[in-house]
């Protein structure tokens, strides 16, 4: 079992939900990203999704688009992000998912990427524009390297297709809670509840919900319905606002702490052994 599954399992035993946080690597710069991740972990983040910036992020809303542009301008590349991950891994056991689009990986070389990502301590990858139909060209390298291939299920995915996708899913299932791009609309708890219940009947993997959760209140509403939640754009917006100011790390950790407390408070069995 990899770090991702272990983390979900350990939290579940404690009756707690998993808090996944996304940030765009290299925004405002890679040194800051490297400082932010351990701080976020200390503030209660369980899994970190490291966004690999891409010039044309068609599944992302304006917040992550802008962060990607800033990161690219500051020179973030896949190679540098892997180097940052490797150095992070020397001091932290936090599960790491690389989140991005296929072209930077294709350009890097899928085989080289798989080997180096695994060696750098990456636990899983999520490639937004690589649906199961096209995924084999990357998975033939990343599966043997032991990298979890996190798959997305959308509100538009019908049950037949969901079952097909889930047969080959590893790590956890990422349920996109809104029909839209990242960070633009809030999920509706009733829809998420029924959709996640349906998914849970199809898979033994943990299900995390993301794409529209931006406030502690939303985190509290959605967390009890799933195994975990993902917060991305809200954190990225905060990082964008603070930029290189000294205030950045305290502000980001304080926000992460609020989300953590909201999740824990909303899940009644929390803390019981």
């Amino acid at each position: 079992m990899g770090r991702i599954e272990e983390r979900f399992t350990a939290l579940k035993k404690e009756g707690r939900k998993t808090f996944v946080a996304y940030l765009t690597a290299g925004d405002p710069d890679l040194e800051t990203t490297a400082r932010l991740i351990p701080a976020l972990e200390a503030a209660g983040v369980d899994i970190i999704e490291i966004g690999v910036p891409f010039s044309d992020p068609t599944a992302d809303g304006p917040v992550i688009q802008a962060a990607s542009q800033r990161a690219l301008k500051r020179g973030a590349t896949l190679a540098k992000i892997l180097a940052m991950t490797a150095s992070l891994r020397r001091t932290s056991g936090i599960p790491i998912v690389l989140f991005g689009y296929y072209n930077p990986i294709l350009s890097y070389g899928p085989e080289k990427f798989a080997g180096e990502a695994a060696a750098s301590g990456v636990d899983g990858i999520l490639v937004v524009d690589l649906p199961p139909e096209e995924a084999d060209e990357l998975r033939c390298y990343t599966d043997p390297a032991g990298l979890a291939f996190i798959t997305l299920i959308a509100p538009t995915t019908d049950p037949v297709r969901a079952r097909k996708i889930l047969r080959r899913a590893t790590g956890f299932v990422y349920y996109i809670s809104v029909t839209g791009v990242t960070g633009t609309a809030a999920p509706r708890a009733d829809d998420v509840r029924s959709d996640v219940e349906r998914l849970k009947r199809m898979t033994a993997l943990p299900v995390a919900v993301g794409f529209g959760i931006s406030t502690p209140g939303q985190a509290a509403a959605i967390a009890p319905l799933s195994d975990g939640i993902v917060v991305g754009s809200a954190l990225v917006r905060l990082i964008g606002e603070k930029g290189t100011s000294d205030d950045l790390v305290p502000a980001a950790t304080s926000f992460a702490g609020e989300i953590r407390r909201a999740i824990d408070a909303a899940c009644p069995s929390q803390g019981k052994k």
Binding site: P131, E133, T151, L152, A154, I176
Partner: peptide, 22 residues
């Protein structure tokens, strides 16, 4: 069948769009 011209083409799209493309 899945839109590949040799190594080119295909359907590299986000899951939200996949059902619509199908």
């Amino acid at each position: 069948r899945r839109g590949h011209f040799g190594i080119f083409g295909g359907r590299y799209a986000a899951e939200t769009l996949m059902p619509a493309l199908l």
